[in-house]
């Protein structure tokens, strides 16, 4: 019961730790619902990343395990959607509601 959120958090931070995976999230933020082909095109053409389709596929699997990417079949194609829900865990873990961080000491 206690271990579950820890495992989820581990997957989440691991997923966010890689710059290529963060770029994939950037691109899915611009447009959710992309095929593997479109994600590969964006990484190679827009970001000049020399990365194989297999490697992109593995990155997507890590993002999916962390809950940041969801996949759906539409017709015969598989589409990848962005899910920012798990990021709330990060906010709720350290941010105290109603404050904007440590109080600045008065002069």
């Amino acid at each position: 019961m206690v271990a579950y959120p820890v495992v989820v958090a581990d997957d989440l931070f691991k997923a966010l730790a890689d710059p290529t995976r963060r770029t994939i999230l950037d691109e899915l933020t611009e447009k959710s619902g992309q095929t593997l082909f479109e994600i590969c095109s964006r990484l190679s053409m827009k970001h000049r990343l020399g990365i194989s389709r297999q490697a992109v596929s593995q990155h997507l699997a890590v993002l999916e395990a962390a809950g940041l990417v969801e996949t759906r079949r539409e017709g015969r194609c598989k589409f990848h959607d962005l899910n920012t829900g798990p990021l709330r865990q990060i906010a709720e873990r350290w941010l105290v509601p109603g404050t904007s961080g440590p109080k600045e000491s008065a002069p």
Binding site: Q34, T35, L36, F37, E38, R53, R76, C77, K78
Partner: peptide
């Protein structure tokens, strides 16, 4: 074809 279509490859 089905394998390519699944990944969105033209």
């Amino acid at each position: 074809r089905d394998t390519l279509v699944k990944d969105g490859i033209p």
